[in-house]
Amino acid sequence: MGSYELSLVTLAAIYVMLALSLNLITGFCGQISLGHAAFFGAGAYAAALLTKSGWPLAPALVSGAVLAAAFGFVVGLASLRVRHDFLAITTMGVGFLFIGFVRKQQGLGGELGLSGIPDHGLGPWGLAALTVTLAAATAALSLHIRRVWAGQAFAAIADDEDTARALGIDVMRYKLTAFVLGTALAGLAGGLFAHFTRFIIPDAFGFTVSISILAMVIIGGIGSTWGVLAGAVILTLMPELFRFINDYKLLLYGGLLLLVMRFAPGGLAGGIAALTARLRGAT
């Protein structure tokens, strides 16, 4: 593999982490978020500032994740106040607040962003291996959560919050857990991204990015770990592998969002499940 292919693998792994982390919040727990890129950004800025001030990579990445999780906890508190459409707009607002704030902070580089982020010292193979391992760990965690009590509680809340509460599920605790876990993983992905590109600007964490992450979740199949993983990989690699798409990347994302929601809200995973069910029925 050349360095270009390695960088694609790294990028895809970062997006897999991001999409799976949003899937924890939106897919598993049913809390729609249109501002996920803000947590990605919080982790990226925190980790970059720390390594720039001389910290080693690992504690900087962890601190980025912790900061993003703290931010996610606050937004999770908001999800206790507002639901559904209101939550969608609130999280979108949080996203705009984040980049609006970062843009004006000279300490964060303002519009120009942070450059000269130190070399991670792992080499391209090392970084690719690290991100792929972490992405795989995120996927394993997602699959695990689905099988344990917390996953059942998430599903109950996603399905009908009031019924879940009536059944004695501690809705507040599980919602906050989903937000903290999901945003921590997004923050970790952010730290990796900052050290992968070594240059970050506020717009790399704007609304378009939030929607792209959401597109990966929706197109892959909301709630399905394997579907979301596939969605993230496909949507990251497609514009890279087919250069002519790159100019139409947003058109492709938007068009797919539109078509999937209109014709197949289960996404890729839902489509495959329906197809196998039909094939089984036919035999």
């Binding site: 969608a88 929607i211 058109l251 938007g254 539109l258 929601m261 209109r262």
Partner: peptide, 10 residues
Amino acid sequence: LIASIGLFIV
């Protein structure tokens, strides 16, 4: 909502 965002981007 998401379909509408998709349409808007398109």
